[in-house]
Every structure is written in structure tokens, then in C-alpha cells.
Simulated scan of single mutants.
Amino acid sequence: MATPAFEDIADTFSFLDDWEDRYRHVIELGRAMPAMDPALQVPATKVEGCASQVWIMPAIESGRFDFIGDSDALIVKGLVAILHALYAGVPVAQVAAIDAPAELGRLGLEEHLSAQRSNGLRAMVKRIGQLAAEAA
């Protein structure tokens, strides 16, 4: 049930044989994301459980889930970009049906991220689920 944007990322990852190339691609995805207005980087938008600073603010429009996100670490901002590709544009009621661990597993991230980064990624997925549930 992945979005076309996420499928594009998965396709790109399938062509990158080396994890270092994938790592660079994640960083580039983060660099391509627009910066979040610092005024929105407040405790209410902060994701708890991440080693880096991460902020996610929902942006629901016409019943479709979207969010603005940012991080103070490039690799983490890239992970935020991947999650954005996975969830943006999905009907709010269907966000919970996305099997994020399985979809992210297709990218092979878990086996190459540190334990702290993996925990942070799970915290971001959990926070997105909470935001969608609140909006539903």
C-alpha cells in the first residue's frame, strides 16, 4: 500500500548495491526537503524517543494526511523525508493500515542504522500514527 513517492525511493534503493550509496541517497532526500520554520520547532511538534532533534507537524487537507518535518541531523532528516514519501497524501483513515516496518524493511534500513537511529525511526512512525488517529 505504499505511495508512488515511496515506490520511487524503493526502486532507487534497489539499484544502489552499496549501503554507503544508500546512506548518501538518504542524506540527499533530507537535503531536498524544505526546512521547517523554526517557529514550528516547539515541544508540541517534537518527537520524543529520537537521539537527534526531530519535529513533525501534521498538515491535514481534504481528509488526506501530510506533515511538515525536520531534524537537526542530515541522516535523520532523510529518514523524515522517507516517512513523508510513505505517508503524504494517504487518506487519514488509511494511515494506520500502512505497515511501516514492512515497507521500510524493503529499504534495508534497520540492518544499517544504529540502535538509536532505529529507535528514533520507530518513534517517528508511532508519532505519525498518533497524529493521524487524532485527525481521524
Rank of each mutant, 00 (worst) to 15 (best):
T3N: 05
A5G: 04
F6L: 05
I9V: 12
A10S: 14
D11G: 13
D11E: 12
T12M: 07
T12E: 10
S14A: 13
L16D: 00
D17G: 15
D18T: 03
W19K: 05
R22K: 15
R22N: 03
R24M: 12
V26E: 12
E28P: 01
R31D: 10
M36Q: 08
P43Y: 09
P43K: 09
T45P: 04
K46D: 06
W55P: 00
I60C: 05
E61M: 13
S62T: 06
S62V: 02
G63F: 06
R64I: 01
F65I: 10
F67C: 10
I68V: 14
S71C: 09
D72K: 05
I75L: 15
G78D: 06
G78P: 11
L79V: 05
I82K: 11
L83P: 11
L86E: 06
Y87R: 01
G89E: 07
V90Y: 03
V90D: 01
D99M: 05
D99E: 09
A102H: 14
A102L: 12
L104C: 06
L104W: 07
G105N: 00
E110T: 15
E111P: 00
E111S: 14
E111V: 01
S114L: 11
S114F: 08
Q116D: 15
N119E: 11
L121V: 03
M124N: 01
M124Y: 01
G129C: 01
G129N: 00
Q130H: 08
L131N: 08
A133L: 01
A133E: 11
E134F: 02
A135Y: 03
A136M: 03
